[in-house]
Nucleic acid binder design. Structure first.
Length: 492
RNA sequence: GGCCCAUUGGUCAAGCGGUCAAGACACCGCCCUUUCACGGCGGUAACCCGGGUUCGAUUCCCGGAUGGGUCACCA
């Protein structure tokens, strides 16, 4: 039996970081087992549909390199479907659901319900007031199919509910949780078909997973509790249920479910900040799964090779930006400068350091700047916090420590000598600066920290920063000289 | 609140009856570096609490506590 798995987002916005991980695990599991990974769009809630959401999600998945074998894909910016188990968009499968819901109705496993939302609300309130768990009271179970159809013919609005047997334990085995048992008395007669003719998730997911030949359902743990309803549906249809795999949640620092409004949770947020796809994917793979050995850094190929559902953890994991940064910085260091430069340019433009028209002629210079900074970035966008030293004209000591350094008594002499030597050369590059430092050391006896730090602070205002010779190369001869003048005139 | 699930350092986590309880991030220290980083080496730091079972429990069982999930015509 070939493995077939699916990722089934609903197009209500962006791809949540937790969804990315769910998709990734599905993808890894499929690839590992030579199976297929399908992307199905679950757009059964007409009220929550967001324009352009599908396209955005598809782009995020493509960015991350989690590519599906079947499902909705973007071709020349147009949404098309690939694969022979389609349609893969639920709103295009309405007739299919109709057929199966009729089957259920005829067999007595589902019934029409005419209760108004008001009545439902009322019942719930009463139950709550009585200290009971809110649950549909089965009011419409009394109607025969025939009676119900008469009411429908009279124009009454209805939904279709699952008719659950009383007091029956439904058990299923979850790959990560083991055996889970829930009694039907604790489950609602779930609405299967809504009054607008669309199926609910619970119905569509079962019909589609069956029809699409899904063998393993790998999804977030928020679905664990409703799985018995799905298992029951498989049973009454006489279908074989898939293997269930419920993934633990990804939590924030407060150990709450990671959600919007408390920072970055959308894949696009990380793209925007300048995280690399291999960094994000590598990190996210490690929240909720661990390899047999101690490996931390993985390419997608290695993840596929090492991944197994048996090693998925049971409990939720906190999203740790520090570790993400560490992993991401690894991939930034590994990348060709050109790649980081190209990613950095939009950030520099946005921050106002360069204009779009300047970019071409300044490309080499920008590349030099990126070369100097590349090893120090956690994510590319961070570069805008570090480039000020290359653009500033008026040196300002960044803190008290910097101010102290500017007060050292040999600074005026040092700047004088250094300025003269810079003046004397054509082009400032790394080796030239190193040579100059050597000469100064020989001529004045100033060396080490006493040599580098005063120059660094005088020319950049900062105590910390990238390698000085490289930094000076990027600053350039003219700017070095004018900064020296500025410091002499204003800060000494 | 009912039901379901979980609980190893600050965080991710290994462990699957006998270990001085791995490793990584973060933090601290040292080394490398004529500066700053990178890097290398080292350090601090954990089995939620009770009962059982067992010669022996972090590991198995039962309670409790804590945390999470879920109780929609949302997914």
């Amino acid at each position: 039996m070939t493995v077939r798995v699916r990722f089934a987002p609903s197009p209500t916005g962006f791809v949540h970081i937790g969804s990315l991980r769910t998709a990734l695990y599905n993808y890894l599991f499929a690839k590992k087992n030579g199976g297929q990974y399908i992307l199905r769009i679950e757009d059964t809630d007409q009220t929550r549909y967001v324009e352009g959401a599908i396209e955005g999600m598809l782009n995020s998945m493509a960015w991350a390199g989690v590519n599906h074998d079947e499902g909705a894909v973007l071709e020349d910016d147009k949404l098309v479907e690939k694969g022979d188990h389609g349609p893969y968009i639920q709103s295009e499968r309405l007739e299919i659901y109709q057929k199966y819901i009729q089957e259920l109705l005829e067999a007595g496993h589902a019934y029409y319900c005419f209760c108004s939302r008001e009545r439902l609300e009322e019942v719930r309130e009463q139950q709550k007031a009585a200290g009971m768990t809110p649950k549909y009271d089965g009011h419409c179970r009394q109607y025969t199919l025939e009676e119900a159809r008469t009411k429908i013919a009279n124009g009454e609005s209805y939904v279709i509910r699952l008719k659950l047997p009383e007091n029956r334990d439904i058990q299923f085995s979850d790959v990560v949780r083991g055996n889970v048992t829930v009694n039907t008395n604790d489950i609602d007669d779930q609405v299967l078909m809504k009054s607008d003719g669309f199926p609910t998730y619970h119905f569509a997911v079962v019909v589609d997973d069956y029809l699409m030949g899904i063998t393993h359902v790998i999804r977030g743990e928020e679905w664990l509790i409703s799985t018995p309803k799905h298992v029951y549906l498989y049973e009454v249809f006489g279908w074989k249920a898939p293997q269930y795999v419920h993934l633990p949640n990804i939590l924030n620092a407060e150990r709450k479910k990671l959600s919007k409004r408390q920072g970055d949770v959308a894949v696009e947020d990380f793209v925007r900040k300048g995280y690399l796809p291999e960094g994000l994917v590598n990190y996210i793979a490690l929240v909720g799964w661990s390899p047999e050995d101690n490996q931390e850094l993985f390419s997608m190929e290695e993840l596929i090779e090492k991944f197994s559902l048996e090693r998925v953890s049971k409990s939720g994991g906190v999203f740790d930006t520090d570790k993400l940064n560490w992993i991401n910085s690894h991939y930034i260091k590994e990348s060709p400068v050109e790649r980081i430069t190209d990613l950095a340019i939009p950030h520099l433009i946005k921050a106002g350091y360069v204009t779009e028209v300047e970019v071409n002629e300044k490309y080499q210079w920008i590349k030099d700047m990126v070369t100097v900074l590349q090893d120090r970035l956690s994510y590319v966008g961070e570069i805008v916090d570090k480039v000020d030293i290359f653009f500033t004209t008026e040196i300002k000591p960044e803190d008290q420590e910097a101010e102290e350094i500017l007060k050292v008594e040999h600074l005026p002499q040092l700047l004088e000598v250094f300025g003269e030597k810079i003046k004397a050369i054509e082009v400032v590059d790394e080796d030239v600066v190193k040579g100059i430092f050597k000469e100064i050391q020989k001529e004045t006896g100033i060396k080490g920290k006493n040599l580098f730090m005063p120059i660094r602070v005088a020319l950049t205002g900062a105590v910390h920063g990238p390698d000085l010779p490289l930094t000076l190369k990027v600053i350039g001869k003219q700017n070095i000289l004018s900064r020296i003048d500025y410091v002499k005139n204003n800060l000494l």
